[in-house]
């Protein structure tokens, strides 16, 4: 069974069509990336999945359940980290996590809170009010709140926006270790480099899905530019990014002695995603 099944999902705000006939399947146990620029509809899509938003058209299923109709059953299974921290800033991290945990019957809650504080590296400041935390730390508290009832699927809305590179790396290590335990992660981001860290990605722009694939396949849609200088003459070619193509292209030259220099410039994931997005314009 897929963790998420979306068919023909459309959402209108007045005349504004924010999501346009989205079809999407997320297999269980993967890290699924939702990549898109500001205003693409990432938050809207996630809200439809957690049951915070009524679709205008189409159907949404999480573990075969409808997020709004079967909300009581689903709430045990889903963890949601909103784009804004959504925390009580006057109370401590520990109290925040405990509070959201108490919404459901959790045995050994205190113990679990402590474990999650350690897992998210917050134990040193667990009892200080959240308002004294940096933005990146607040994000971690928010993540901890989403994890407390050990959900089977996590919806994380831009969990690493405005987080420094070191912490970002740590966060992705956390996500990967969660995925290893069988948790499905659905992560939105506008940072293209994070796409490579997902098992599968969807590119969203203006409410439309432009591509669904593994990041490797998306990357291979990119181009490699080769620049050769032979006997003082500049030769430029553009080929696909597949390693085999590079080899056969270079074979043409037999790498003869007169070649003084070769420059190879391959698209990175960001270039490819941006070109997919820009082609749609």
């Amino acid at each position: 069974m897929n963790a998420v099944n979306i068919k023909g999902l459309t959402k209108n705000y007045g005349k504004n069509e924010v999501l346009k006939h989205i079809d999407l399947e997320v297999p269980e146990g993967v890290i699924y990336g939702l990549i898109g620029p500001n205003g693409a509809g990432k938050t809207t899509l996630i809200k439809a999945l957690v049951g915070a938003l009524k679709p205008t058209q189409g159907s949404v299923e999480v573990f075969g359940l409808e997020p709004i109709k079967n909300r009581w059953e689903l709430r045990k299974k889903i963890g949601y980290m909103p784009q804004s921290p959504a925390l009580y800033t006057d109370i401590s991290a520990r109290r925040n996590i405990t509070f959201f945990g108490r919404a459901q019957k959790i045995i050994n809650l205190e113990e679990k809170v402590q474990k999650i504080l350690e897992f998210t590296e917050l134990e040193n400041r667990a009892d200080e009010p959240v308002r004294t935390f940096s933005g990146g730390m607040q994000k971690r508290v928010s993540l901890a709140c989403a994890l407390i009832h050990e959900p089977k699927i996590l919806f994380l809305d831009e969990p690493t926006a405005a987080v420094d590179p070191h912490l970002k790396q740590r966060s992705w290590q956390l996500f990967r270790s969660l995925a290893k335990t069988g948790v499905t992660l659905f992560i939105s981001t506008h940072l293209m480099d994070e796409a490579m860290l997902c098992d599968k990605i969807t590119i969203l722009k203006d409410g439309e899905m432009l591509a669904v694939n593994t990041p490797e396949n998306i990357l291979s849609m990119g181009k490699t530019r080769i620049e050769l200088i032979r006997n003082g003459e500049r030769l430029k070619t553009e080929i696909s990014s597949k390693p085999a193509d590079l080899l056969s292209e270079l074979k043409k030259f037999g790498l003869d002695r007169s070649i003084e220099n070769i420059k190879i410039n391959s698209d990175n994931i960001e270039d490819v995603v941006l070109s997919i997005i820009n082609n749609k314009k």
């Binding site: 049951g51 915070a52 709430r75 909103p82 959504a86 925390l87 009832h149």
Partner: peptide, 13 residues
């Protein structure tokens, strides 16, 4: 406005 109401509801309150 802070999103905690939404979060409470989704958490199961």
């Amino acid at each position: 406005t802070r999103g905690t109401l939404e979060r409470m509801l989704i958490s199961g309150y």
